[in-house]
Amino acid sequence: MTARPRRRHWCALGIRPCLPGAGSRGDRRGGDHVGNLCNRTMLGKGGQLELTTELRQSMFGSFTRLGRPKSTNDTFWRFTAACRSAIARLEAGPDQVIL
């Protein structure tokens, strides 16, 4: 999936890119840099999301290390469902072959 279709997919899920130029070819923030930890998988690619503190706080009733596991809310579950949907769509692609 190229940067443009990937951006459209995230936008369709209600997730908007916040870095101008992120995802453009050659931009290390775009995720295609070989040194990016996400790309050090068997397929040589991955995904990485940077979440603001405000967004992370909105996903839990109690934003403490001990409180988070027991206080997930609808925002958390909608966000994880959107991420899982994007992953499933990516994995369904014809280029997802491990030799």
Rank of each mutant, 00 (worst) to 15 (best):
H33D: 15
D32G: 10
G67S: 06
P5I: 03
A22T: 03
G47L: 15
A81E: 13
E50G: 14
P69I: 08
R7G: 01
R8C: 06
L99M: 10
R29A: 15
R29I: 12
R28T: 08
H33P: 08
G93V: 08
R56M: 14
L99I: 09
G23V: 02
G23T: 01
F76G: 07
R7D: 00
T72S: 09
A86V: 01
R56H: 15
F79C: 07
R7H: 01
C11G: 14
R78A: 12
I98D: 02
T80P: 05
R56L: 14
E50D: 15
R25I: 11
R4L: 10
P94V: 09
F60N: 02
N39K: 01
G23H: 00
M1P: 07
Q96M: 12
R28F: 14
R25C: 10
S58T: 00
N39M: 03
G67Y: 05
D95P: 01
C83S: 06
C38G: 07
R7W: 01
G47Q: 10
G44D: 13
A92F: 06
D27L: 06
A82L: 02
L49D: 14
M59A: 05
A88M: 09
A92G: 13
R6Y: 06
Q96V: 08
T72W: 04
N73L: 11
R4C: 06
D27N: 11
D95H: 05
A81V: 03
I98Y: 04
R4F: 10
I98L: 08
S58G: 04
R29Y: 11
T80V: 13
R6T: 03
T53M: 04
A92E: 05
M42W: 08
G21C: 02
S85Y: 12
R89T: 11
G30V: 00
G46Y: 02
R4H: 09
S62C: 14
E91R: 03
T41L: 04
R16P: 06
T64K: 12
G47H: 12
R68F: 05
F79D: 03
T72N: 08
A86T: 01
N73I: 11
R28G: 10
R6G: 03
V34K: 14
R68S: 12
G23P: 01
I98T: 04
G21Y: 00
W10Y: 15
R56T: 15
D27T: 08
R65D: 13
S62Q: 14
T2L: 08
G61A: 02
H33L: 11
V34H: 13
G47M: 15
R56C: 13
R29W: 11
P5L: 05
L66D: 10
G31R: 00
N39I: 06
R6D: 07
G26H: 09
W10T: 06
G30A: 06
S24D: 12
L49G: 06
R16S: 15
Q57Y: 07
F79M: 13
I87N: 00
I98W: 01
G30M: 02
G46N: 00
G14D: 02
A22V: 11
G44I: 10
I87T: 04
A12G: 04
G31Q: 07
S71Q: 05
S85V: 07
